[in-house]
Measured scan of single mutants.
Amino acid sequence: SDIKVHVGDITVELHNVSEEFARLVEEALRLGLNEEQAKEWAHKALH
């Protein structure tokens, strides 16, 4: 599904992702990663 993740003043739109993936992206953003890094990190975490 499509999910918007908000962290501080950052909003990341995720398309066709699981809630778990979105949660991992949100966690990575909170750790200070940028959007691209957060998506990559979440992807690796799920595989």
Rank of each mutant, 00 (worst) to 15 (best):
residue 14 L to G: 05
residue 21 F to P: 00
residue 20 E to Y: 10
residue 37 Q to W: 03
residue 41 W to I: 12
residue 25 V to N: 00
residue 26 E to K: 11
residue 45 A to D: 02
residue 37 Q to P: 01
residue 8 G to M: 03
residue 22 A to I: 08
residue 21 F to M: 03
residue 9 D to Q: 13
residue 23 R to K: 14
residue 15 H to R: 07
residue 29 L to G: 02
residue 24 L to A: 08
residue 11 T to E: 11
residue 6 H to K: 12
residue 4 K to H: 11
residue 15 H to L: 07
residue 43 H to W: 13
residue 26 E to G: 13
residue 25 V to I: 09
residue 29 L to V: 03
residue 17 V to H: 09
residue 35 E to Q: 08
residue 33 L to V: 02
residue 37 Q to F: 03
residue 42 A to M: 01
residue 8 G to W: 00
residue 3 I to S: 07
residue 11 T to W: 09
residue 29 L to C: 02
residue 16 N to M: 05
residue 8 G to R: 03
residue 32 G to Q: 01
residue 32 G to E: 01
residue 3 I to H: 15
residue 23 R to D: 04
residue 4 K to P: 08
residue 44 K to V: 14
residue 46 L to I: 13
residue 38 A to H: 00
residue 17 V to P: 06
residue 26 E to W: 04
residue 18 S to H: 07
residue 18 S to Y: 05
residue 33 L to A: 04
residue 1 S to H: 15
residue 2 D to Y: 09
residue 33 L to M: 15
residue 11 T to I: 14
residue 35 E to F: 13
residue 47 H to E: 12
residue 7 V to P: 05
residue 42 A to E: 00
residue 40 E to F: 06
residue 45 A to F: 14
residue 28 A to T: 00
residue 46 L to W: 09
residue 47 H to D: 09
residue 3 I to Y: 11
residue 20 E to M: 13
residue 8 G to T: 06
residue 23 R to Y: 07
residue 12 V to W: 00
residue 8 G to N: 09
residue 19 E to R: 08
residue 32 G to D: 02
residue 34 N to H: 03
residue 34 N to L: 03
residue 44 K to E: 14
residue 39 K to Y: 12
residue 33 L to K: 04
residue 4 K to N: 12
residue 22 A to S: 07
residue 28 A to F: 09
residue 45 A to S: 12
residue 16 N to Y: 06
residue 8 G to Q: 06
residue 2 D to S: 13
residue 10 I to T: 11
residue 24 L to G: 02
residue 14 L to R: 04
residue 34 N to P: 08
residue 6 H to P: 05
residue 27 E to G: 04
residue 27 E to K: 13
residue 8 G to S: 06
residue 27 E to S: 11
residue 9 D to S: 14
residue 4 K to Y: 03
residue 16 N to A: 07
residue 42 A to N: 00
residue 39 K to W: 12
residue 20 E to C: 04
residue 42 A to P: 02
residue 27 E to Q: 15
residue 36 E to N: 11
residue 2 D to Q: 12
residue 36 E to D: 15
residue 26 E to H: 08
residue 40 E to Q: 12
residue 12 V to P: 05
residue 35 E to D: 05
residue 45 A to C: 08
residue 27 E to D: 10
residue 15 H to A: 09
residue 29 L to A: 02
residue 35 E to M: 11
residue 46 L to C: 03
residue 31 L to M: 15
residue 10 I to K: 09
residue 41 W to V: 13
residue 39 K to Q: 09
residue 3 I to N: 07
residue 39 K to A: 04
residue 37 Q to K: 08
residue 25 V to H: 01
residue 28 A to H: 02
residue 24 L to T: 02
residue 30 R to N: 10
residue 10 I to D: 06
residue 22 A to P: 01
residue 11 T to N: 04
residue 15 H to I: 12
residue 26 E to R: 09
residue 15 H to E: 08
residue 21 F to A: 01
residue 1 S to R: 15
residue 43 H to Y: 14
residue 35 E to A: 13
residue 43 H to E: 15
residue 7 V to S: 06
residue 39 K to G: 02
residue 16 N to G: 14
residue 43 H to V: 11
residue 32 G to T: 01
residue 44 K to S: 14
residue 33 L to P: 00
residue 15 H to G: 08
residue 31 L to H: 11
residue 8 G to C: 08
residue 21 F to Y: 14
residue 44 K to P: 00
residue 3 I to E: 05
residue 5 V to G: 06
residue 25 V to Y: 09
residue 5 V to S: 06
residue 44 K to W: 09
residue 6 H to C: 08
residue 19 E to G: 10
residue 46 L to S: 05
residue 29 L to Y: 03
residue 12 V to D: 05
residue 17 V to I: 08
residue 31 L to S: 13
residue 46 L to F: 09
residue 10 I to E: 07
residue 31 L to K: 12
residue 4 K to D: 11
residue 30 R to T: 09
residue 6 H to S: 15
residue 36 E to Y: 10
residue 21 F to I: 02
residue 20 E to F: 12
residue 44 K to I: 07
residue 14 L to F: 03
residue 9 D to E: 13
residue 24 L to P: 00
residue 40 E to K: 11
residue 16 N to F: 04
residue 20 E to R: 12
residue 1 S to L: 15
residue 17 V to L: 05
residue 11 T to Y: 12
residue 7 V to G: 09
residue 40 E to N: 08
residue 29 L to N: 01
residue 10 I to Y: 07
residue 7 V to E: 06
residue 2 D to G: 12
residue 7 V to I: 10
residue 9 D to I: 09
residue 16 N to C: 08
residue 25 V to D: 00
residue 39 K to M: 14
residue 9 D to V: 10
residue 6 H to Y: 01
residue 29 L to P: 00
residue 42 A to T: 01
residue 13 E to I: 15
residue 43 H to K: 14
residue 47 H to I: 12
residue 34 N to S: 13
residue 23 R to L: 10
residue 37 Q to V: 02
residue 6 H to N: 13
residue 27 E to T: 13
residue 7 V to R: 03
residue 40 E to P: 00
residue 47 H to G: 12
residue 12 V to Y: 00
residue 19 E to N: 11
residue 14 L to D: 07
residue 15 H to S: 10
residue 1 S to Q: 15
residue 12 V to C: 03
residue 2 D to V: 15
residue 36 E to A: 04
residue 21 F to G: 00
residue 19 E to C: 09
residue 44 K to R: 12
residue 36 E to F: 10
residue 18 S to F: 07
residue 33 L to T: 01
residue 37 Q to E: 14
residue 17 V to S: 09
residue 20 E to G: 08
residue 35 E to T: 12
residue 19 E to S: 11
residue 38 A to F: 01
residue 21 F to N: 00
residue 3 I to C: 05
residue 16 N to T: 06
residue 46 L to T: 07
residue 22 A to K: 06
residue 10 I to A: 08
residue 11 T to R: 04
residue 36 E to L: 10
residue 12 V to S: 05
residue 1 S to C: 04
residue 1 S to Y: 09
residue 40 E to H: 11
residue 4 K to Q: 13
residue 20 E to T: 09
residue 44 K to L: 11
residue 7 V to K: 03
residue 23 R to S: 08
residue 35 E to H: 06
residue 42 A to G: 01
residue 31 L to W: 08
residue 11 T to C: 04
residue 10 I to S: 08
residue 23 R to H: 09
residue 18 S to K: 06
residue 43 H to L: 12
residue 26 E to Y: 10
residue 23 R to V: 08
residue 24 L to D: 00
residue 13 E to S: 13
residue 22 A to Y: 07
residue 5 V to P: 05
residue 35 E to K: 08
residue 30 R to E: 08
residue 18 S to G: 09
residue 38 A to V: 01
residue 33 L to S: 02
residue 39 K to D: 03
residue 32 G to A: 01
residue 27 E to N: 05
residue 27 E to M: 13
residue 26 E to M: 11
residue 10 I to W: 06
residue 45 A to T: 12
residue 38 A to I: 01
residue 20 E to A: 13
residue 29 L to F: 03
residue 2 D to L: 15
residue 37 Q to C: 06
residue 18 S to T: 15
residue 42 A to S: 01
residue 6 H to V: 15
residue 14 L to A: 05
residue 9 D to A: 14
residue 31 L to F: 10
residue 11 T to Q: 07
residue 21 F to C: 03
residue 7 V to W: 15
residue 41 W to A: 15
residue 15 H to N: 11
residue 7 V to H: 12
residue 35 E to I: 15
residue 8 G to V: 04
residue 31 L to T: 08
residue 2 D to H: 15
residue 2 D to A: 15
residue 42 A to L: 02
residue 46 L to V: 09
residue 37 Q to G: 05
residue 14 L to E: 06
residue 22 A to G: 07
residue 46 L to D: 03
residue 9 D to P: 09
residue 21 F to K: 00
residue 27 E to L: 14
residue 3 I to T: 09
residue 22 A to N: 04
residue 12 V to I: 14
residue 17 V to T: 10
residue 41 W to Q: 12
residue 23 R to F: 08
residue 34 N to D: 14
residue 30 R to P: 00
residue 11 T to V: 15
residue 43 H to P: 01
residue 47 H to C: 14
residue 22 A to W: 09
residue 18 S to C: 03
residue 5 V to L: 13
residue 11 T to A: 04
residue 30 R to S: 10
residue 19 E to H: 13
residue 38 A to S: 06
residue 47 H to P: 04
residue 19 E to Q: 14
residue 15 H to C: 06
residue 7 V to N: 06
residue 34 N to F: 03
residue 28 A to S: 02
residue 34 N to T: 15
residue 22 A to F: 05
residue 38 A to C: 01
residue 28 A to P: 00
residue 36 E to I: 10
residue 42 A to I: 03
residue 5 V to T: 05
residue 13 E to G: 08
residue 33 L to R: 02
residue 19 E to P: 13
residue 14 L to C: 05
residue 46 L to N: 03
residue 1 S to A: 14
residue 29 L to Q: 02
residue 29 L to T: 02
residue 22 A to D: 04
residue 35 E to V: 13
residue 25 V to W: 03
residue 43 H to I: 10
residue 15 H to P: 06
residue 37 Q to I: 02
residue 16 N to Q: 11
residue 22 A to T: 05
residue 36 E to G: 08
residue 4 K to C: 06
residue 18 S to P: 06
residue 20 E to S: 10
residue 14 L to I: 06
residue 33 L to F: 12
residue 16 N to W: 08
residue 44 K to Q: 15
residue 22 A to M: 07
residue 41 W to N: 11
residue 16 N to S: 08
residue 45 A to Q: 15
residue 38 A to Y: 00
residue 6 H to M: 10
residue 47 H to N: 12
residue 7 V to Y: 14
residue 41 W to F: 15
residue 1 S to K: 15
residue 13 E to M: 03
residue 8 G to D: 09
residue 39 K to R: 14
residue 11 T to M: 11
residue 47 H to M: 12
residue 10 I to C: 05
residue 5 V to I: 14
residue 2 D to T: 15
residue 13 E to T: 13
residue 45 A to V: 15
residue 13 E to C: 04
residue 41 W to D: 05
residue 14 L to Y: 02
residue 39 K to S: 03
residue 13 E to L: 03
residue 21 F to Q: 01
residue 23 R to E: 06
residue 37 Q to M: 10
residue 37 Q to R: 07
residue 22 A to Q: 06
residue 1 S to E: 12
residue 28 A to V: 01
residue 46 L to P: 02
residue 7 V to L: 09
residue 4 K to R: 14
residue 19 E to V: 13
residue 31 L to R: 14
residue 2 D to I: 15
residue 24 L to F: 10
residue 38 A to E: 00
residue 7 V to M: 07
residue 42 A to K: 00
residue 34 N to K: 05
residue 45 A to K: 14
residue 15 H to V: 12
residue 23 R to W: 07
residue 11 T to F: 11
residue 6 H to F: 01
residue 18 S to M: 06
residue 32 G to P: 00
residue 26 E to P: 00
residue 40 E to L: 13
residue 30 R to C: 07
residue 25 V to E: 00
residue 22 A to R: 05
residue 1 S to I: 15
residue 38 A to N: 00
residue 40 E to D: 15
residue 28 A to L: 04
residue 16 N to H: 12
residue 17 V to A: 11
residue 25 V to F: 12
residue 9 D to W: 02
residue 43 H to S: 11
residue 24 L to K: 08
residue 44 K to M: 12
residue 29 L to R: 04
residue 18 S to V: 06
residue 18 S to D: 07
residue 32 G to C: 02
residue 17 V to F: 05
residue 22 A to H: 05
residue 39 K to H: 05
residue 28 A to Q: 02
residue 29 L to M: 10
residue 19 E to L: 13
residue 30 R to Q: 11
residue 10 I to M: 12
residue 42 A to V: 02
residue 34 N to V: 03
residue 40 E to C: 03
residue 29 L to E: 02
residue 11 T to K: 09
residue 32 G to K: 01
residue 27 E to Y: 14
residue 6 H to D: 08
residue 9 D to Y: 02
residue 10 I to F: 10
residue 33 L to W: 07
residue 13 E to V: 15
residue 23 R to Q: 10
residue 42 A to Q: 00
residue 35 E to S: 10
residue 35 E to G: 10
